[in-house]
Design a protein around this nucleic acid. Structure first.
Lengths: 231, 231
DNA sequence: AGCCAATTCATACAGTTGTATGAATCATAC
DNA sequence: GTATGATTCATACAACTGTATGAATTGGCT
């Protein structure tokens, strides 16, 4: 046993040289990264705890040790991305309002604050980050009750602030109409990210030159026209 | 034997009065209905074959007998709804083009052909049909590879015809831009359906008076403004 | 060196999963 | 009524699921 485990460890150190910073929470992060990827690719229920531990090259017990249960791991995976995303959105909203000095910002600026952080999170270093895209897109349609509640709480708190900002920018638009239009915009954003994450579900002409800024520009322009249109 | 079966029939007729049309494939339909509901509520992987047979009050073996495997049942559930939906869309598209006699139909008419069949399938007899809503909304984000392929095939075939119609109505709009805008519209529709299916994720002011025609009108107006906006 | 808390590991367990099998029951035509 | 094909049923099975347990191992501290 002793020799066996020592041999295993040695082998690992050779094959995975990044173990230098093996100081703290290395396995925890490895689990989060791997779980995020597998959840995005195969779905929550279809991904077993063993799938994750094998892919992450950690022990089966590691998940229960670090997260307690599979459900807690799922929540950790989502929380790690959603909180920062929505905080960046609100930060951009704050900045837009600060820049416009008292006056309500342009609808386009508000939309960009909603959209840009999501799209940019989906393009890591210029290249598409399909994991993030799929995870975000699946956020809202996951049947998992705890996740649904988590998403709804986070999402509605952010959306309430945006709704107020839009209402100030478009005082003549009925509140009910505005809320529906924001739902349409959210859906358009999520679906665009999802579609972008699957190369081959894009119509041929869209496959080339798929960049973050292009998508943001298109969606902002489209949504601005829809939002500003008179009922 | 004859008397026996007649007695059984009679007993069944008493407890479940809709058994009048008990002529053929009664259990098959019961399985499809129940599976559709449970898949929509809990997701594909989270719903076991036993969950379905218990809820449908049929024998465990019934699914394997009538459908072969769980995967085949899943495909049957989706196919039963998607094909008729897309056929109605294309029929409305045909009618719009027929009515406009040579000229391209108004963008609003094209959008309504895309949107109305989906929304109306989601409102059975005036009331919300949350099962259908959730199933449709989950269509595009299901990780199941076979389902993904099924959806993509059906959806792209229909979308190609709509894209051509829109291109005729808006000849000055670049094709790439048009395709993206149609993706945005699809996303808005799907997300609106999903949101509508969860009562408590609707902002308070939207919960009342949620009707099919209202939603269609709002989405068509929003999408028409977005689609027609000059790049 | 030796101790301690943190982490990793192998293994076990009970419950659930999808599917298969063969007998029982059905409906129907003769 | 009996034969026949279609359907239903109870049961079995191997594989996989999430979780728990306790021993082994680690890295940092004095």
């Amino acid at each position: 046993m002793k020799t066996n485990s020592k041999q295993n460890r040695f082998a690992k150190t050779i094959t995975t040289p990044e173990n230098a910073e093996h100081t703290l929470a290395a396995t925890k992060e490895k689990i989060l990264d791997t779980a995020e990827r597998l959840f995005a690719e195969r779905g929550l229920e279809a991904t077993s705890i063993r799938d994750i531990t094998v892919a992450a090259e950690v022990n089966l017990g590691a998940i229960n040790y670090h997260f307690g249960t599979k459900q807690k791991l799922i929540e950790a995976v989502f929380n790690r991305r959603i909180e920062p995303l929505n905080q960046r959105r609100l930060a951009m909203l704050d900045e837009a309002e600060r820049k416009s000095r008292g006056k309500p910002p342009a609808v386009e600026a508000l939309l960009e604050a909603m959209i840009r952080p999501a799209v940019e999170g989906s393009f890591a270093a210029g290249k598409r980050n399909t994991t993030f895209m799929r995870l975000m897109a699946r956020c809202h349609s996951e049947p998992n009750p705890e996740i649904e509640h988590l998403i709804r709480t986070q999402f509605q708190a952010m959306m309430a602030r945006f709704a107020a900002a839009f209402a100030r920018a478009l005082p003549e638009l009925p509140r009910e109409e505005l809320l529906w239009r924001l739902i349409f915009v959210s859906g358009g954003l999520l679906h665009a990210l999802l579609i972008s994450s699957k190369e081959d579900s894009l119509p041929g002409s869209l496959r080339k030159r798929l960049d973050a800024d292009g998508l943001i520009q298109r969606l902002v322009a489209f949504a601005a026209a829809g939002i500003k249109s008179s009922a």
